[in-house]
Simulated scan of single mutants.
Amino acid sequence: MVAQAPARQTPAHRRIARVLAALAVLAASILSVAQARPAAAATNQFKGVNWADTRDNYNSGWVIPDGLAASDSYSQVYSVADTYIKAFQSNLGANTVRLPINPPSVSQSWWGAYKGAIDAALADGMKVDIACWTESSSVGTITNMSAWQSMWSTVVSAYGGNSNVYFEPLNEPYGYSSSQWISIASSWLSEFSSVPRSRVIIAGTGYDDHVTAEGASSALNGTLLSLHYYGTWASYTTESAWQSDLNSRIGGYTGRTVITEFGGPMTTGINYLTNHSNGQYQSFLAAVTDTARSDSFGTVYWAGLKTGDNYSMEKHNGSGLSNNNASGVTQVRWGWGY
């Protein structure tokens, strides 16, 4: 065979080759950056309510959610919880329930019965956020570290393997500085390293009122962040003002943030579908729900059920539950993407 001479490259061919080579380098660079910085996942899979103790979840004894009694057996707790969880689902469209614990509730006999609430919620297909409260609203620190760690050992042993259970090491750690709280939270993560960080919800600084310090901490990478937000924390009357304030509390951590408490009066007749530009609570609830919907983060309403609290979304109706405020339900559901 006669060898053929290689094709002669023209200047145009060489320019095209250089462009293609540059594009290949650019594509490789973009791929490398994408791999190094995984996209933040949305948290809008959480469409939840708090099921709270009527005395409040700050308690030196057992925390007992509304409708349950200290004398209840496991089967009795399970039956009541099953009824209420199904009501949260059908009345509100909720798929998450946030349940309180504290050391006495887990270390003493109540735990054997109280697990019925968690088990019923899981059997009904709910996500369960198990959150620890301190003994009173005037104590923003862990008063007995050994008891706290023992409590979490028991809870994680029981539910650490269930992908629908999430763990909040401490609610509203306002007695600690940001650095102190981050140190305690990171120690929790080390102690319970078998729990995927994506199922741990770390409280924001203070009353869970800012998550920027926790979000910026490399020690807490991979965890979710808990933010609380209430319409009594300012006196804005426009949705835009509330949104600006809310965004400053979240910073650049929308993809990790879950608002685990927010709410407004539901028993006073407020129409939450109006006055978004001239009403304090209407504009507040609109700001939270509109922002949650547009930015794809999850919310857990306070409270789904808490008799005596005018923020309660639900009320007792025979053996079941019914809504206190249809407009409030509509606005919260809007934030959940309905």
Results as ranks from 00 to 15, higher is better:
residue 104 P to L: 06
residue 276 H to I: 10
residue 148 W to E: 06
residue 129 D to F: 15
residue 161 G to M: 10
residue 246 L to T: 08
residue 220 L to R: 12
residue 108 Q to D: 11
residue 234 A to N: 12
residue 157 S to E: 05
residue 73 S to V: 00
residue 320 G to K: 00
residue 30 I to Q: 11
residue 311 Y to P: 07
residue 298 G to Y: 09
residue 86 K to M: 09
residue 186 S to K: 10
residue 160 G to R: 08
residue 32 S to C: 14
residue 123 A to M: 13
residue 264 G to A: 15
residue 128 V to N: 02
residue 168 E to Y: 08
residue 161 G to I: 15
residue 151 M to W: 09
residue 94 A to T: 00
residue 229 Y to K: 12
residue 9 Q to L: 13
residue 329 V to W: 05
residue 336 W to Y: 12
residue 149 Q to G: 06
residue 211 V to C: 03
residue 60 S to P: 05
residue 203 A to W: 10
residue 144 N to F: 01
residue 239 E to H: 05
residue 69 A to R: 09
residue 243 Q to R: 12
residue 25 V to F: 12
residue 282 Q to R: 04
residue 201 I to Y: 08
residue 312 S to Y: 00
residue 242 W to P: 04
residue 298 G to M: 04
residue 304 G to S: 05
residue 22 A to I: 14
residue 208 D to P: 00
residue 175 G to Y: 06
residue 116 G to V: 03
residue 14 R to E: 08
residue 27 A to T: 11
residue 225 L to S: 07
residue 210 H to I: 14
residue 173 P to C: 11
residue 164 N to V: 02
residue 246 L to K: 02
residue 287 A to Q: 04
residue 101 I to W: 05
residue 173 P to L: 12
residue 10 T to R: 14
residue 211 V to F: 05
residue 303 A to Q: 07
residue 323 N to W: 07
residue 176 Y to W: 03
residue 4 Q to S: 12
residue 245 D to R: 08
residue 179 S to E: 09
residue 253 Y to M: 00
residue 98 R to S: 03
residue 75 S to G: 11
residue 268 T to S: 15
residue 31 L to T: 07
residue 51 W to Y: 04
residue 60 S to L: 06
residue 306 K to Y: 02
residue 143 T to V: 15
residue 87 A to F: 07
residue 174 Y to Q: 15
residue 86 K to E: 09
residue 330 T to L: 01
residue 95 N to Y: 07
residue 283 S to V: 01
residue 294 S to M: 05
residue 258 V to H: 01
residue 177 S to W: 13
residue 75 S to E: 15
residue 214 E to A: 13
residue 4 Q to R: 15
residue 2 V to P: 13
residue 59 N to V: 01
residue 51 W to H: 03
residue 134 T to C: 09
residue 238 T to A: 10
residue 270 I to W: 12
residue 307 T to H: 10
residue 39 A to W: 13
residue 281 Y to K: 05
residue 213 A to G: 10
residue 87 A to K: 13
residue 136 S to L: 04
residue 312 S to G: 00
residue 74 Y to A: 06
residue 152 W to G: 12
residue 153 S to D: 05
residue 174 Y to H: 14
residue 119 D to A: 10
residue 276 H to R: 08
residue 111 W to N: 10
residue 233 W to N: 00
residue 158 A to M: 04
residue 264 G to R: 07
residue 5 A to K: 15
residue 169 P to W: 02
residue 116 G to K: 07
residue 243 Q to S: 11
residue 130 I to E: 09
residue 69 A to H: 11
residue 113 A to K: 04
residue 102 N to E: 02
residue 280 Q to P: 00
residue 145 M to R: 15
residue 146 S to H: 02
residue 332 V to Q: 01
residue 91 N to I: 06
residue 17 A to E: 13
residue 22 A to D: 09
residue 99 L to N: 01
residue 157 S to K: 05
residue 34 A to P: 04
residue 172 E to S: 09
residue 227 L to F: 07
residue 21 A to N: 01
residue 311 Y to K: 15
residue 184 I to D: 05
residue 94 A to N: 02
residue 323 N to E: 13
residue 281 Y to R: 11
residue 76 Q to N: 11
residue 325 N to L: 08
residue 126 M to N: 11
residue 333 R to H: 06
residue 80 V to K: 12
residue 159 Y to V: 01
residue 55 R to A: 13
residue 186 S to Y: 10
residue 36 A to M: 06
